[in-house]
């Protein structure tokens, strides 16, 4: 049981770190390339430990992110929920893929979140963002192998299952 508690702590800490990375200030020209850290971490835990991390945790993290970013309550939550659902559905197929193909699947999931997010922005009456808006998922895709390896090491170290 003690490993289970350790594991929970590890998951919580990685998610909190991802939240902090999300609000890390970047220079203006770099801001559109900020990857969706929280989403990447959430996808990993959904795929690696689908019986522990899922829609509920995704939604709660989304609400926290909304408050941190000063967005509409639920704007990120809805995207994270839906992506968590898809990664739970896909986890058995994706887990066995080699890393590059995994990265492509992750790109799709990241794009889904951006799509939902742009829909919310449009519904609120904001002008459409520039094309750089779609750069973040690409950056996320390229970062995926590293994130995967780091989080896998974390998972093995703390024997999260």
């Amino acid at each position: 049981m003690s490993t289970g508690r350790n594991g929970t702590l590890a998951i919580a800490i990685t998610l909190l770190l991802a939240l902090m990375l999300e609000i890390m200030p970047l220079p203006d020209w770099l801001a559109p390339f900020q990857p969706q850290w929280l989403l990447l971490t959430l996808i990993y835990w959904c795929m690696a430990t689908p019986n522990r991390v899922g829609i509920g945790i995704g939604w709660s993290c989304g609400i926290l992110l909304d408050i941190l970013k000063g967005a509409l309550l639920g704007q990120h939550a809805i995207g994270l929920t839906i992506v968590a659902y898809f990664s739970l559905k896909l986890h058995q197929r994706t887990r066995v893929l080699p890393l590059p193909q995994q990265a492509l699947t992750v790109l799709l999931l990241l794009l889904v979140e951006r799509l939902i997010s742009i829909w919310v922005i449009g519904a609120m009456g904001y002008p459409a963002p520039s094309l750089w808006y779609w750069a973040a998922p690409l950056v996320g895709m390229m970062l995926w192998p590293w994130i995967y390896v780091i989080l896998r090491d974390v998972r093995r170290r703390f024997r999260v299952s």
Partner: peptide, 11 residues
């Protein structure tokens, strides 16, 4: 969860 998020956004 989706319904809750949508209502939250509306409210």
């Amino acid at each position: 969860a989706i319904v809750i998020s949508l209502t939250l956004m509306m409210v």
